[in-house]
């Protein structure tokens, strides 16, 4: 089992909220993702076992939602929105700035395994564009200086062993 007993309990609790166990697929994959940092077929199998549903249904749902990484990613998953509002306010420039700064291409992970950079569709925060999401938090009204500050903070945090 990859899932911890605590995650299993949380998935079971989530399933209890619905008349059908199948309805708990999304909460379940969220719980698994938060524990592991990404999803994979082994996890789909474990979740299916807990919910007593076919594994393919878990895999289907997981594949539909792009916000769940399916491969291991860095400690910090930087998701930069590039849709209309963010694009108008310089999202692409921000992305290339991050690429240069972290010395990776979009879709790659830094060699110290700290940061993964991805381009995502609208995150529903157009009023605060340009913006990005790192793990479970939004960083809004971004500028290059702001990005510098955030990366610096996260690097320091990782070195001191803390978590977000």
């Amino acid at each position: 089992m990859i899932l911890t007993p605590e995650s299993v309990t949380r998935i079971k609790d989530a399933a209890a909220l619905y008349p059908q166990a199948k309805s708990a697929i999304l909460p379940a994959i969220t719980i698994a993702y938060r524990q592991v940092g990404h999803l994979n077929p082994d996890l789909y199998g474990e979740i299916a076992g807990i919910l007593d549903i076919p594994a393919v249904e878990v895999a289907e749902a997981a594949s539909f939602y792009t916000m769940f990484p399916k491969e291991p990613v860095g400690k910090y998953l930087i998701q930069v929105c590039h849709n209309i509002s963010c694009a108008l306010l310089g999202a692409e420039g921000l992305l290339s700035y991050l690429q240069d700064k972290l010395d990776i291409e979009v879709g790659e992970t830094t060699s110290d395994n700290l940061f993964t950079l991805v381009r995502v569709e609208c995150l529903g925060s157009c009023a605060t564009a340009p913006m990005m999401q790192i793990n479970h938090d939004y960083y809004e009204n971004l500028s290059r200086a702001e990005v510098d500050r955030i990366i610096e903070k996260l690097t320091a945090e990782a070195q001191s062993g803390g978590t977000l």
């Binding site: 076919p54 594994a55 393919v56 249904e57 289907e60 539909f64």
Partner: peptide, 16 residues
Amino acid sequence: GVFERGNHTEINVAPG
């Protein structure tokens, strides 16, 4: 199963 979405939607065998 059906995987991915939109233009990339595909039918495929279940993982493994």
